[in-house]
């Protein structure tokens, strides 16, 4: 047999029989809850990871045969030898040149006009580019703590500016997060350190709420199934009272309308149940 004991306002803990002696409940150091709740500590995600920063896309694979950003408009390069041209592609350039092209592409998607570098959308786009490039780099070199700090600060800066943009211009904010593929989540309302005891309390509360809801739903179903019988009985009772009042010659308090209304309710309910049954059969 499992008995429940209330601890505090919201928590209920089932108790082993061994803990109950002559109706006195005691708890000792070996006290164990009998509920089938298992707590798994969530794995810590580093602050720079895309799961935390809200980036849905990572650094894309760029075409390595692209000419470097600085030499795209060079006329000399266009008329140069094939081998020279090859030397000015991303294939033979350090990673920072690939990053530069990526930053340029991402800003290009959202900027207002050709020379726009300072609008809020262009700035956020550029920071997004930097974040995605550095996230990829930090995955390869996780012990680069200096970069980790820089990246964390940059992610937080972007989040702050997104928060401001949301307050200033909601439509632009929504357009921007859609275009840049960023998920924006507000700060949690409650700040706490995850602990076993606290988490178990929350899970127990959730479990109890679930039980309450299930039972309420069952009770609701039971009442609904009894409803037609109840209405039929109500009609017969009302009719009986009315007949008796007429027979005794006293004041008639039950009107025909009242009985008809209940009858209508019953008919409606039957129709509804039939429709539901048909739907279930079809499914």
């Amino acid at each position: 047999m499992i008995r429940f004991r209330c601890l505090g306002i919201n928590s209920v803990v089932p108790i082993h029989e061994s803990c109950i002696l002559d109706n006195i409940i005691f708890r000792n150091y070996a006290f164990k809850s009998d509920l089938k709740i298992k707590w798994n500590r969530p794995e810590k995600i580093p602050c720079y990871k895309p799961e935390k920063s809200g980036d849905l896309k990572g650094f894309p694979k760029l075409d390595k045969k692209q000419v470097l950003l600085e030499f795209r408009d060079s006329k000399e390069l266009q008329s140069a030898d094939e081998n020279v041209k090859k030397l000015f592609t991303l294939e033979f350039a350090p990673k920072k040149y690939t990053n530069r092209i990526f930053y340029n592409d991402i800003v290009e998607k959202v900027k207002r006009h050709e020379y726009d570098r300072t609008s809020i959308e262009a700035k956020i786009a550029k920071w997004t580019g930097v974040i995605r490039a550095q996230q990829e780099h930090l995955d390869k070199f996780p012990r680069n703590l200096r970069l980790k700090v820089i990246l964390k600060e940059l992610i937080e800066k972007r989040k702050k500016h997104l928060r401001h943009l949301r307050r200033w211009d909601y439509k632009k904010f929504e357009w921007l997060i859609e275009n840049l593929d960023i998920v924006y989540k507000p700060e949690p309302t409650e700040s706490y350190v995850i602990s076993r005891k606290d988490s178990l309390r929350k899970l127990t509360d959730k479990y109890c709420e679930g039980i309450k809801e299930d039972r309420l739903n069952l009770y609701k179903l039971k009442l609904e199934s009894e409803h037609p019988a109840f209405l039929a009985e109500k009609i017969s009772c009302l009719k009986f009272i009315r007949d008796e009042q007429i027979a005794c010659g006293t004041e008639v308090t039950v009107t025909d309308d009242e009985i008809n209304e209940v009858q209508k309710q019953l008919d409606d309910l039957k129709k509804k149940n039939e429709e539901l049954n048909k739907q279930n059969e079809n499914e």
């Binding site: 707590w39 798994n40 849905l56 929504e174 960023i182 924006y184 700060e187 409650e190």
Partner: peptide, 24 residues
């Protein structure tokens, strides 16, 4: 631009309260 709210539950979660994940 569409009316505000088209990113709700997609990329914008400001319409709900968030909490620190305590159970996996």
């Amino acid at each position: 631009a569409p009316k505000r709210g088209w990113q709700e539950n997609k990329k914008d979660f400001t319409h709900v309260e968030t909490y620190i994940k305590y159970h996996e």
